[in-house]
Simulated scan of single mutants.
Amino acid sequence: MRERDDEWTGLMQQAIGGDDEAYHRLLRQVTPVLRAAARRGLARAGQPPDQSEDIVQEILLAVHLKRHTWDVSAPFAPWLFAIARNKLIDALRRRGRRIFVNVDDFAETLADEPAAPQVSAGEVVAQLQTLPQRQREVLQSIAVEASSIKQTAERFAMSEGAVRVALHRALSSLTAKLREQ
């Protein structure tokens, strides 16, 4: 381990001095180590390891762009792994907290679930008529006519936020009314 760190430090010092071949050798040596570290980090976070290549590329790009900030009198590996840790954390934050579950593991359970009660189109239309006019218009524009939030906002002279609120309220109200039946 110490030998590897010394070699990487030497290669980076040569690369900073302008030796392109040393820089390429360094990148070839660190890439598999970074790939393994990214896979381990993703696995520890409960994420699929297939995203590790994107993280490795982000790390290598950061190393390339920030190589001038490395202190040539310091060991290279701690600097590299600090960048790797930060890029992994950034990637996990962008993904948010998601848990991946293979649906095949639950095939029998899902097959046993009772089907949702069927609602006729007539019942939906009847309940739509009970909604306030603006909510009904917004729901019709977005859900039936496939207009965007922006288009709907312009059409009804509303802000996009107001359209989202009206849509949410309409869907919530419609769902509650249909469940009551």
Rank of each mutant, 00 (worst) to 15 (best):
R2M: 10
R4S: 13
D6I: 10
E7Y: 06
T9W: 06
L11F: 10
M12N: 09
A15N: 10
A15W: 15
G17C: 05
G18E: 05
G18I: 09
D19K: 05
E21N: 13
H24L: 12
L26P: 08
L27C: 14
Q29Y: 04
T31G: 10
V33P: 01
L34V: 01
L34T: 01
R35G: 07
A37R: 15
G41I: 00
R44N: 09
A45P: 07
A45N: 00
G46S: 08
P48C: 10
P49H: 08
D50T: 10
V56F: 05
Q57I: 02
Q57F: 08
E58H: 14
I59L: 11
L60N: 09
L60D: 08
L61K: 08
T69V: 06
T69E: 11
W70G: 00
S73N: 12
P78H: 07
L80H: 03
A82E: 13
K87E: 15
L88F: 04
L88C: 05
L88H: 05
L88I: 02
G96P: 05
V101N: 02
N102M: 11
N102F: 06
D105S: 06
F106A: 00
F106N: 02
A107T: 00
L110G: 01
L110Y: 00
A111L: 03
A111W: 01
E113H: 04
A115P: 01
P117S: 15
G122M: 12
G122D: 15
A126I: 03
L131K: 07
E137M: 15
Q140S: 07
S141I: 02
S141C: 09
V144E: 01
I149T: 14
K150Q: 10
K150V: 07
Q151I: 00
A153T: 11
A153H: 05
E160D: 14
A162N: 11
R164G: 10
A170H: 01
L171V: 02
L171G: 07
S173H: 03
K177G: 07
L178N: 13
Q181G: 12
